[in-house]
């Protein structure tokens, strides 16, 4: 007399192409490939100066030279090659900084939200105090103290932004911790930490991933800002932020030096934030 499941007709499984997932994914995928293969795909040495070829316009304008697709800057360096090498730094910083921020902030958020008590009091106060510092000033100060360089930039981002994860994940964990399935895990003999990792974490994970993607976008911006004020890695290395900073001076007669890295920056940040939402929709069994 066992009840068998009826075929669930209304849950139409028409899998439409999820543009929110695939468009950002294809942009970021391209970026990753290009960044990894930068020395081979970049048409020129990003650092090679050639004052005969200064401020060449991009290919679709008059007066261009073959091979310099997106033009050159005021020192005659190829914009496209510098962008490709810049993508390396942008991705390296965003992925590593965001991951560190995410792991550190989410762990504190989970602990505060689930254990409550003095865990929560200490972590929440710390978040409050931390958030009272103006973030950009904080980053500039940190880099100034620790010295410029890739690790400084990554550390600065993680040190500023962990509060975002801690706050959001703490609130979500508190909601989940009140659900009966948490009590039911206790009844089923689960240890506290096992309940947190095995029961609550899977329910908070979609939010963590969405935040992680958002954070990658933010990290790209922060790195660009630090480059812009010349506090990122050595000013020789091409980064999108330093390109934008240099392009600013020539905006009236060589706008492309500024515009193309800006577009890349914009697309990357947008892609990361959309990817977060797209992944959430795609992999959440409850939302499906």
């Amino acid at each position: 007399m066992a009840e068998t499941s009826l075929p669930t007709a209304p849950r139409a499984r028409v899998r439409r192409l999820n543009l929110r997932l695939w468009l950002p994914l294809s942009w970021i995928g391209t970026l990753v490939v290009v960044a990894l293969a930068a020395p081979w795909v970049a048409p020129h040495d990003p650092l090679a100066q050639d004052l005969f070829f200064e401020r060449l316009p991009p290919f679709f304008l008059a007066g261009t030279e073959p091979g310099f697709w997106l033009g050159t800057d005021s020192l005659g360096r190829d914009v496209l090659s510098r962008m490709i090498h810049g993508a390396r730094i942008a991705l390296l910083v965003s992925v590593s900084a965001a991951l560190i921020t995410c792991i550190f902030g989410s762990a504190l958020g989970l602990l505060a939200g689930y254990y409550g008590g003095w865990w929560d009091r200490v972590i929440s106060r710390l978040v409050d105090i931390w958030m009272a510092f103006p973030p950009v000033l904080f980053a500039v100060l940190l880099v100034a103290v620790m010295g410029t360089g890739l690790t400084s930039v990554i550390a600065a981002i993680a040190l500023i932004d962990w509060t975002r994860f801690a706050r959001v994940i703490r609130a979500e964990t508190m909601v989940q911790a009140r659900m009966d399935y948490v009590d039911s895990a206790r009844i089923g003999g689960a240890r506290r930490l096992a309940t947190l990792v095995g029961e609550i974490l899977p329910n908070v994970l979609p939010s963590i991933i969405a935040l992680l993607m958002l954070e990658m976008g933010i990290a790209v911006i922060v790195e660009a800002i630090l480059s812009f004020v010349n506090l990122s890695i050595s000013s020789d290395d091409p980064t999108w932020g330093s390109m934008i900073a240099e392009g600013r001076n020539a905006i009236h007669f060589a706008w492309w030096v500024l515009l193309f890295p800006l577009i890349a920056l914009f697309l990357t940040v947008l892609s990361f934030s959309q990817l977060g939402e797209g992944l959430k929709q795609r992999f959440d069994p409850v939302l499906q």
Partner: peptide, 17 residues
């Protein structure tokens, strides 16, 4: 705990989604 089991009021909330 093995001998002290419980069935909850709200099965939606007591089963991990």
């Amino acid at each position: 705990r093995r001998d002290l089991q419980m069935i909850f009021q709200d099965p939606m909330s007591s089963l991990n989604p």
